[in-house]
Nucleic acid binder design. Structure first.
Lengths: 209, 209, 209, 209
DNA sequence: CATGAATGAGATTTCATTCAT
DNA sequence: TATGAATGAAATCTCATTCAT
């Protein structure tokens, strides 16, 4: 058989599962860039190389599609973070591993984090999204709670600063992901900066001694 | 006909300046909560107790209204920040003053910062907004550049960490304002936390010695 | 009394009659250029240097204003045409006088004829205008009937070509006025051309003898 | 629910090409009768038995629809006129053929010419239409230039009366088409009249000898 | 006599969704 | 499985008109 020859028989022309994941992948980017409302079904369909009607074969509605994208992104993200922190025993070490994972993920697919930022914004704007995405809050909160509790256990964090640290970590990660929407360089720079900040090495006091 | 139904023509005791600032004030909240697209003219008009047509008596378009709100909010915010940092001579002192000012402003009108966050998101989603709001970037960038340059001058920040610090400060403030959309308590807690983080007092290393 | 000195006493600042005729004059141009619908009250008011509300002091509605403009233009036009044809006794002489009058009027105020063309078009598009302007048809029809009847009486026109001639004259004048909207030169050229056409001097047969 | 009410989704037995040409045909009449602005999407949709939204399935905008109608009408009209004059060699013969073609076309579809008249008016009123329809001017101008140039070549028209004749022909045809909006009888009568006028047989001089 | 604030009706356009094919 | 014709609801914006001042 000549190497470049086409196989005989029915070509695997249209593959349902492939189409569905193409829709999911393109929707992730589109939602990440434009948000829920501004991403029209037409845009989503064009990017996935199908028509608007076909979307409804795979997803019940635009909202369902968004939620499915979120489910996938959320899982990828927190699976990775779980794996990243697991081998470490201290708050600082786990935090460092999180920074590493964030940079890795951002390098692999910048839209992953961007989507989560967009979803966070849209949750506050569209009540139905708030309702639909609420269930995902659990894993996220648990992840950060475990992180900070490690610090309390090891003595790195005072017990009465537990909530404060949680709030700082949350705000920092939101800010970092937003920074990721600017440019890859800004993102890396901000991550390095926060690493130094937690290490107490970013700024010293101006008062001598 | 209902007793207190609105009649055609100029309503009695109507005041142009008052109506205009009522529209601006309500638009600020509405845009802050829902973003540009999801804030419909109907919503804006209802909140300001007028009809959608009347908006166009004061503003050329919905986008013009948004830009006017932004102009006002931006000015209030950076006037306040300028005043706050002015008396101080070091990076750490200026940063502390910024934290104070943020808490104050948040207490006076939580929608001020929320609006700026919403505007930031919408700029990335709506090209016309990006164009219209670009001019405001100058003052913001200058403010933060001056802040960090102070630190470089006093020796608090190494010259080669200037950009990194800028990126961290930017990401932190975005994160903080996002935290402000959750609850006032979370916001205060996160601000306190960042204060400690910059002071190097939030977390210590778990390694003894 | 110094020549350039201002008169003492109350200056004739705002004069009701002057304002009304300013509105009429500007409305004539505006309607002529843009038609009834596309001429907004705002445009009419701006051109007359007043506000939209003031229009309603002088005219009951936009339609009333249009009708008043029409009344004026129609009268000026047909007074002039009546005066032009009156001294002449033959169809050809009267027609020549009409061509002269048309050129004169076009030179004095090109919007006069343009307005009538616009009104003619808008009558066919807006039922209320058709109703309001119908009364004016009488004088116009009478004028052209008298013109052609003169030709029949003098023997210039065969009695059985009376209606045909009426239709040709009407179509020609509409065409001419439309030509007037292009450029003054085109208008003059078309008038000269029609003059020659009626004199049988514009085109000769190509067949020899 | 009323028995023959329209349901959501694609109606049974619907045919894309048929719908599109139904829209075009109805739009031609509607635009011809009411002009561009006064023809609302609602009117166009009702006449074509669809909803306003469906128009946008076939045409990008109301203006696009108008331009498409114009493209079609313009082509039908000038194809016919080209065919009509082609077999003839003199100006007078070509002009006669044009009169024949005009009557034929008017008999087949009175809205064809009416549409062109309406478009001509609207071009002067709506700048976007002027821009969009400018390309069509070329064929029209070339047609009439060729017609008159034939006359100059055969000696029917003096070379120095070329422009004048062009202007007369243009004004006459505009006048004729306007006459066509009145009644079919008036139109035929005016066409016959112009035929005689060009033949020098409509009116004779009243002066003897 | 005149302003200009405000209404209400309606225009163009967009878009998620439905459904015959 | 997929298309794309079509709907219906809603959004932005325009504008003649009214009316307190």
């Amino acid at each position: 058989m000549a190497p470049n020859e086409r196989r005989l028989g029915r070509p695997p022309a249209s593959n349902s599962a492939a189409t569905k994941s193409r829709i999911l992948a393109e929707a992730r980017r589109c939602f990440a860039d434009n948000g829920f409302e501004a991403s029209t079904n037409k845009m989503l369909a064009d990017r996935a190389d199908i028509t608007t009607g076909a979307i409804y074969h795979y997803f019940g509605s635009k909202l369902d599609l968004f939620v499915d994208v979120h489910r996938h992104v959320h899982q990828v993200m927190y699976d990775r973070l779980d794996d990243a922190v697991e081998p470490h025993d201290s708050f600082q070490a786990k935090l460092g591993a999180i920074f590493d994972a964030i940079l890795e993920l951002q390098g692999e697919d910048p839209w992953l984090a961007r989507f989560l930022v967009a979803a966070r914004t849209d949750m506050g704007r569209i009540p139905e999204l708030e309702t639909a995405l609420r269930p995902f809050a659990g894993r996220r909160d648990a992840f950060f709670a475990a992180l900070v509790d490690t610090g309390v256990t090891t003595g790195e964090i005072d017990a009465d600063k537990r909530q404060m640290t949680l709030d700082v970590v949350a705000a920092m990660l939101i800010g970092l992901t937003n920074a990721g929407t600017a440019s890859a360089e800004t993102h890396r720079s901000a991550v390095r900066g926060f690493r130094e900040l937690w290490a107490g090495a970013l700024a010293r006091s101006s008062e001598p001694v």
